[in-house]
Simulated assay, not measured.
Amino acid sequence: MYFKFLILSALFFLLVSCDGFQEIEGVVVDSETKQPISNVELVQINGEKIINKTDDNGYFNIGQIKGFAFGDKEMTVVFSRENYTSDTITFINNESKLIKLEKIVEKQ
C-alpha cells in the first residue's frame, strides 16, 4: 500500500512540475506589396513588454515555457509598426502564419 502511494505521489509531482514549451513563428508582410516588413514589434496580449521583433526578412519566432505540460496552448500577439495598422492574432502551439499589415495612407 505504501509503495502504491509513493509511486502515485511521484507521478503526480512529475506531471505538475512539468513545463510546457510553446513555439510560434511566421512572416509579416505588407498587405499591398507583399514585401516583408522588418522591425515589427510583437507584444503578447497578456503582457506589456515587447517579446520579439521581426528580422530583415519579416520573420519572427517566439518560444516560451508555459506553467504546465497540459496547460493553455494559445498565444495572442499584437503586431505593430509605425505607419501600419496593428493586428491581433491568436496562435495555437507550433503554428506558423503569414501576417499581412496594411500601410496607413495619409490623406492630403
Rank of each mutant, 00 (worst) to 15 (best):
N46W: 07
Q22I: 13
S38E: 07
Y59A: 12
L11M: 09
K66L: 14
T85P: 02
I89R: 02
F3I: 15
F21H: 11
Y2C: 05
F68I: 13
F68P: 03
I7S: 09
N61M: 10
F68G: 15
G58Y: 01
F13D: 00
Q44V: 08
I50N: 11
G67N: 09
N93F: 00
D87W: 04
D55F: 01
A10Y: 09
L11Q: 07
L11C: 06
T90R: 12
L101W: 00
T88Q: 11
G71V: 08
S86C: 06
F5K: 03
D56N: 15
K100V: 05
E106W: 10
N46R: 06
D19F: 14
L6Y: 05
K73M: 09
V28Q: 02
E41H: 02
C18I: 11
L42Q: 00
D56G: 07
S31K: 10
Q108M: 06
K49L: 12
T54S: 05
S31Y: 07
G58K: 04
V77K: 00
F60G: 00
K100Q: 15
F79D: 00
K53G: 12
L11Y: 08
E41Y: 00
N93E: 02
N52S: 12
E102F: 09
I51R: 03
E41R: 09
N52F: 03
F3S: 07
K73Q: 10
G63L: 09
S86F: 06
N52R: 13
T85A: 13
D55V: 04
K66M: 10
F91D: 00
Y84D: 03
R81A: 15
T90S: 04
K107Q: 12
K34A: 11
K34N: 14
I92L: 13
L8A: 15
N39M: 09
E82D: 15
N83A: 13
F91T: 01
F91A: 03
L11G: 02
G63N: 03
F21E: 08
F5M: 09
A69G: 06
I104A: 07
D72E: 14
F91G: 01
P36I: 03
E25Y: 08
V40C: 00
F79I: 01
I7H: 04
R81S: 11
E25V: 05
Q35M: 11
N94F: 12
E106A: 12
S17F: 12
I92W: 05
N52Y: 05
N46D: 14
I62S: 02
Y84T: 02
K53A: 02
M1Q: 08
I104Q: 05
N94S: 15
T76R: 11
P36E: 02
K103S: 05
G58N: 04
I65N: 08
S31T: 01
F12S: 15
E95P: 01
C18N: 13
G71W: 13
F5D: 07
E102C: 03
G67D: 14
K107E: 14
I50R: 11
M75G: 04
K103P: 01
E23R: 08
K100W: 03
I92P: 01
V105F: 07
V16C: 13
T85G: 11
S38T: 04
L15Q: 12
T33D: 12
S17Q: 07
